[in-house]
Design a protein around this nucleic acid. Structure first.
Length: 210
DNA sequence: AAGTTTTACAACCGCAGGCAA
DNA sequence: TTTGCCTGCGGTTGTAAAACT
């Protein structure tokens, strides 16, 4: 029998609707079977990803808040690139979202930090004290077993509603940096934190102008 | 105003682990 | 014990939109 060629690329609205309907019917499992049953020319893997990262109820879209930012930074320092684990601590956020956030924002801020550190290194470089900026484990929900999960918040809006209202109303401020002299890849954020003895991004009040 | 560069994020890919047959 | 399928994870890519020159 001839294999149906699978579609790739961005999802269409009617595909989303079909997928949501089939997931409601069959549940979040057996994605290959589910993909076939839906009539979508998508792989099970693609269906799962679309559902988990975009269509799933209770997902929070839009800008990462200051509090979420703090949690991401602290947990990344603890666990490294364990995005799914970090995502468990941020109800409504997906691992993909956090991963993307880290990549874009950390690089951007690393550049700013690097400049600040170098420019002030003659005297007392980035002399921000340490512990007062660190988030305590109990705040992060890390009191004992790191594997315990937080209860998700009750987000009741539909994915489309959430996306349109939150996402569009929360466009990030202009934080663009275009200085090509700095090599984004070389100066990782962790290196900056370590070198400057800084707890979190907030320490430098970089976003106060928002 | 047009062309170029950068950013943000959705989506894909490959791999590893779990599990049932 | 082995094998194959399914799922989840982390890295990477593609691209539309925004910002810049």
């Amino acid at each position: 029998m001839q294999e149906v060629e699978l579609r790739k690329g961005p999802w269409l609205e009617d595909e989303d609707e079909k997928l949501a309907a089939v997931v409601a019917l069959l549940g979040e499992r057996r994605w290959d079977s589910l993909a076939k049953a839906s009539g979508l020319r998508r792989s099970g893997k693609s269906c799962r990803l679309r559902w988990m990262n975009y269509l799933r109820p209770n997902l929070k879209h839009g800008k990462i808040s200051k509090e979420e930012e703090k949690v991401i930074i602290e947990l990344h320092k603890k666990w490294g690139n364990k995005w799914s684990r970090i995502a468990q601590r941020l109800p409504g956020r997906t691992d993909n979202e956090i991963k993307n956030y880290w990549r874009s924002y950390s690089k951007k801020k690393a550049v700013v930090l690097e400049k600040e550190c170098l420019s002030s290194s003659v005297n007392t470089p980035c002399s921000i004290s340490d512990e007062s900026f660190l988030i305590k484990d109990d705040v992060l929900g890390l009191s004992d077993d790191a594997s315990d999960a937080l209860e998700p918040l009750n987000w009741t809006r539909s994915p489309y509603e959430t996306r349109l209202s939150e996402w569009m109303s929360n466009w990030p401020p202009d934080t663009r940096k275009t200085d090509k002299l700095w090599d984004y890849e070389v100066y990782s954020s962790q290196w900056i934190f370590d070198e400057c003895n800084i707890g979190t991004w907030d320490d430098l009040s970089l976003w106060d102008g928002e």
